[in-house]
Design a protein around this nucleic acid. Structure first.
Lengths: 128, 128
DNA sequence: CCCCTTTTTACAAAGCTTTTACAACTTCGC
DNA sequence: GCGAAGTTGTAAAAGCTTTGTAAAAAGGGG
């Protein structure tokens, strides 16, 4: 698999064509430019990237990044997603997908996308 | 034989010549292309496919997918069936049969079809 | 205080579901 | 066969929920 692994068997690194993340140093680099992320922005990005290719439900994000239980109603996740996307620049929509009604998914840069065969319908399948 | 079975003895997978469904991941693939289904569309398709070859009465579908009792009058089932058929493309009519006055039946791709002037196949129990 | 980060608020936009209205079809009695 | 009554197909609109966005408010560390 991808990055070197530590004793907890968690990758220490993520790397694709444009994005590089060092989970140990908690640093992200986009096209050779260091991203300046706030703590929450980094935590959110890191969590998504560690689960690259998988849908991460809103609930899970709110729990693991904010410690919020499902009873808390907040829009702060949306706002942080937006700021992350802004900092991801032109790749934003390719990297961070919205799974309507469920959560978000980080996709490695060249991950195969399942194209849309039907004229209507939106870019994502259901999953939980 | 069908897919692997979990501890509840429900198949986890469905597969035929064109359609593949992973009930655990709640994802459907048609001719190697992931179908983009909304939640209700997936629930409806999954219920029909789990009972492949059997007639599933409208009442049962409305109860199990929508939680509607028999007193509720709605056309939303018809509309969802239509959208499913659209997304099933050219196989639509082969996969989803209308059993007039009773309900619908999902047929595996190469299943032999019998005349349906006298609908056979045991209906699914309506009770929850 | 000041600056930076985080959260909330309010509204806009997008997505999904349901209803509505009418066309097409099936069944059944005549 | 024919017509009536009921059922299903279909397209479009309405309704509701979720997400995007900008701006203001709230927190927190120096």
């Amino acid at each position: 698999m991808a990055g070197l692994q530590n004793t907890l068997n968690q990758p220490q690194l993520y790397r694709d064509e444009h994005l590089f993340i060092d989970f140990h140093q908690q640093a992200a680099v986009l096209d050779s430019q260091r991203m300046t992320l706030t703590r929450k922005e980094y935590d959110l990005l890191a969590l998504l990237v560690r689960h690259a290719g998988e849908i991460v439900p809103r609930e899970a994000l709110l729990m693991r990044v904010w410690g919020y239980g499902s009873e808390i109603r907040t829009r702060t996740l949306d706002v942080h997603i937006r700021r992350l996307r802004k900092k991801l620049g032109v790749y934003a929509d390719q990297y961070i997908e919205t799974i309507f009604g469920i959560g978000y998914r980080f996709q490695p840069f060249h991950a195969p996308r399942f194209a849309q065969s039907t004229p209507e319908g939106r870019p994502l399948a259901v999953s939980a």
